[in-house]
Design a protein around this nucleic acid. Structure first.
Lengths: 135, 135
DNA sequence: TCCGCGTTTGGACGTAGTCTAAACTCGTGC
DNA sequence: GCACGAGTTTAGACTACGTCCAAACGCGGA
């Protein structure tokens, strides 16, 4: 993503742009693979080796708090950062652990509004299985 | 659960019953709160203080491999062990982090079978929100 | 009774993530 | 131009959760 665009996006979300934050943003926004913090750090380091691990964690958490990312706890042991913040579903490949977005309209859910005991504010369908060879 | 019943259940699943495994089974089966390994360990220790942390982890993983438990990665940073192995959905209270079972029939999902790119072997709806005061 | 194998144990180790205190950056007022 | 201060970044210590390992244990079968 163009640096100018990134800076504007950060400001829109009330985030002071800094070189480190811009680098993290460019490393995670527009990435459809739901990277872990570790993976984002590795990518950021390639361009700016001086960026510390703590900054990457801080920045990702800041982005999540400001609504630029969503944190997804889908696999054990790690957390995925999802730049796709609009509601959607997820498919997880059992063999590889890869996470894929499933468009909101591809799946229909009903009945979640009539649960007596729970006030559902948000929901998603989590699917697991095998990705087919040809999309 | 009665010790005799537990022993029979372990054998049915091809698990050699031992005092430690029986204690873990009694600590986790029939628990609807989706406890973490840490929490199970604390409970087991109350009855049998000599049981080690490693044994609890080993045993929970063994139970999961043998189909006596299901591992649920729903919250960040920890893993929940669910003795309810039949398909069902989950509701997570945003404030407390508590996980509740939602019966399979309470929610209907359609469309997951017609995804071109994915072969869905299993799915569940994950809901988040607020638990109502009175059930 | 003895043997052997599966189980258990404590502690070392690994990994993901947070915290802390010091250093740095940069805009502002003088 | 310079000092200040708020906010940011840094390295490394620290915590939490989980696994691995080698030694000790214990129980069933000959």
């Amino acid at each position: 993503m163009l640096t100018e665009k990134v800076i504007a996006l950060l400001r829109e979300h009330g985030i002071q742009p800094t070189p480190q934050r811009i680098a993290v943003a460019q490393g995670v926004l527009g990435d459809g693979t739901h990277p872990s913090a570790q993976r984002v750090w590795e990518r950021v380091r390639r361009r700016r080796p001086a960026v510390s691990r703590a900054t990457v964690y801080n920045t990702l958490n800041l982005f999540a708090a400001k609504g630029l990312l969503k944190v997804q706890a889908l696999s054990e042991g790690t957390v995925a950062f999802d730049p796709h913040v609009a509601p959607h579903h997820h498919f997880i490949d059992r063999e590889t652990g890869a996470i894929f977005d499933v468009p909101w309209d591809a799946v229909q859910v009903s009945g979640q509004a009539s649960l007596a005991a729970f006030e559902v504010q948000e929901y998603q369908v989590v699917m697991r299985g095998r990705k087919r060879r040809r999309a």
